[in-house]
Design a protein around this nucleic acid. Structure first.
Lengths: 359, 359
DNA sequence: CTGAAAGCGCTTACAG
DNA sequence: CTGAAAGCGCTTACAG
């Protein structure tokens, strides 16, 4: 007999004490009305016997698994650790487990991943959708973590506002000629960040936006950007859409002999693990993942337990067009500007000093 | 009635076809001897009805959940994405799900995390132990991913060999004065990496090892290292124990006006996401996480299904001292040296040229 | 080749 | 306040 439990169960505890398993169940869960001292006796016995409740039994009976699924577009994403950590923490604080699935950037894989999670019986799904993807009805509550500009109900950081903060910071330092660097123009998140920045720059600031991904896709290299030339021609700040891009820019500039921030300021987004470690440390925008996770998990759980007594009448289930998506409406979590040393005042003298003899 | 299934189950499929649920089960699993055309009919019906098997029912019956637990010392670790992705992929290739738990670097939290996973009914555990921690008997198979030098059965990359490869590479480039930079001297992994390097350097190479963490703990800063001085005094290569450290060193050096690799070579470990993106790109050592995951998952699964028919006689279970730890013995997965542009020949002229006019 | 039955461990009305 | 009973969905000997 495969993997059969060897440990104690409710019945065995009951037998040891001469009570029924129902009473043990009630005592342990604190639900039924069981006399205080019986409860105490049962609890002690259970812990003495090393009782571990069976999730399978409970799940089969209640129809709930106590597990949430986390669908990630690409686990290799450097932001993923923050996301997974926050979700795991929020979920386990509520007694839920987290099952992960990696969609490896493919839409079909995303669908498969969701399917696998559903089969495993998750009670709800947190999905960080692949760029611009929509999730159909899946038969369980879904919380999406994306951008506020994504249609549908989502939790997300307010990327637009993050962009505004970067813009104000840079404008306040006197920069007038700014390069905005994005990666993928199809990304809602990146568009919001760039959009926020552009919207917040005063009229006297000239800025241009370059998207890297399309250049690379057409066989170009990072070098085609020619950052040094741009700087020589007057750009005093480069605001990127991610710390990874900022790191790329920063080191490329340093290698070319420019001094950051003395000659050029550089900013990122996301406050990735390496951002404070680099010299100069990156000015960036931090998202409160813990908060996002808390909201997503709370929304999911309220939907899961809220449905508890509503017996799904066929009629009502027909009426709901987007039945499985959670969250009253879009929640925006503020982002926090983190000023570090990669940004500084715009140099009055725009002349390039590649080899930085001014040290 | 909470979350009760609304979809079809084996019985409903059986009713629709006038056969028993047992036959449906057999047909779907391909186990029992069911006539070919009945199988076909049943499969079609099941898919028409949108049948999704109930994990809870199956788990309760078989005593196996089909889920593996992944215990991580710290999800924020930059290596985690690689680990989680590889594990998820190896597990789902074998029909298993992955439940995550973050021990946030604390030993007690690690114990809690394991406990939570066990309660959730995982069939096996993959644990990346917190530095130097041992896991006690937990009641299910455990695979540890650590260093070969850790006592006990583990899968791991051969960090020592990785160190050797870095050493050979650097020695081959003519470096004679090398700084070895570690972070935490309590880490087995880091000790193996440093040990491998030291062991592989020919006798005519002088090398010193510095551990950063103790310096920081005593209130020092990275600046106390005084990298620029070390380089001016003749160090031509800095070999670190992780790409994060290498990045720190690289950017600090660049900021101080040194040219990498023209004046100093820098190496890392782990091939983190940013390593190829930095300028100059980091020479590093890549671990084959997919392979490690495959071995760990395979070992776990063979233990899980292997135990299937061995009814655990009390006698035999007494004899095994480390009953739950898997893997015949330590498996070492080779590491691969990745040569990128942060390393180059040792400069014959050791004179420091901080502001690099030789560009 | 197919079916009836038992039982995994739990919870929840319901009856006492 | 406590217990007997039913049943969640599945699989597996076992009998036909």
């Amino acid at each position: 007999m495969a993997g059969k439990r060897t440990g104690p169960n409710l019945t065995k505890i009951g037998e040891a004490l001469g009570v029924s398993s129902a009473t043990v169940s009630n005592a342990l869960s604190g639900k039924g009305r069981v006399s205080a001292d019986l409860v105490k006796k049962i609890r002690k016995k259970a812990s003495d016997m090393g009782y571990v409740p069976s999730n399978a039994g409970r799940a089969l009976r209640t129809g709930r698994s106590g597990v949430l699924g986390l669908v990630l577009p690409d686990i290799a994403n450097p932001l993923f650790p923050q996301i997974a950590q926050a979700m795991e923490s929020a979920a386990s604080a509520n007694g839920y487990g987290v099952l992960i699935a990696d969609s490896r950037g493919e839409v079909t894989t995303q669908t498969d991943a969701i399917g696998r999670l559903i089969e495993r019986g998750v009670d709800g799904l947190i999905v960080i959708p692949r760029r611009g993807t929509r999730i159909g009805t899946v038969g369980c509550p879904v919380a999406m973590v994306d951008t506020p500009s994504t249609p549908g109900n989502t939790v997300s950081a307010d990327h637009w506002h993050g962009g505004e903060q970067i813009a104000h910071h840079l404008a306040g330092l006197g920069h007038k000629n700014i390069l905005l660097l994005g990666n993928d123009p199809a990304s809602n998140v990146q568009n919001d960040r760039i959009g926020g920045m552009r919207a917040a720059f005063p009229a006297d600031i000239s800025c241009q936006t370059i998207w890297l991904e399309p250049i690379l896709r057409q066989g170009g290299t990072t070098a085609s950007l020619n950052l040094p030339d741009l700087v020589k021609n007057g750009v005093t700040a480069i605001a990127t859409v991610s710390d990874l891009l900022a790191l790329r820019v920063l080191t490329e500039l340093q290698t070319a002999g420019f001094r950051v921030p003395a000659q050029v300021s550089v900013t990122g987004f996301d406050d990735l693990i390496f951002s404070p470690v680099v010299t100069p440390a990156l000015t960036t925008v931090h998202m409160d993942m813990a908060q996002i996770a808390k909201i997503a998990v709370a929304a999911l759980i309220s939907e899961i337990t809220g449905n508890r007594d509503k017996k799904p009448t066929p009629a009502s289930s027909k009426k709901r067009t987007v039945p499985d998506t959670v969250m009253a409406d879009t929640s925006r979590v503020p982002m926090e500007l983190i000023i570090r040393s990669s940004t500084g005042p715009a140099t009055p003298d725009q002349t390039p000093l590649p080899n930085g003899e001014t040290l």
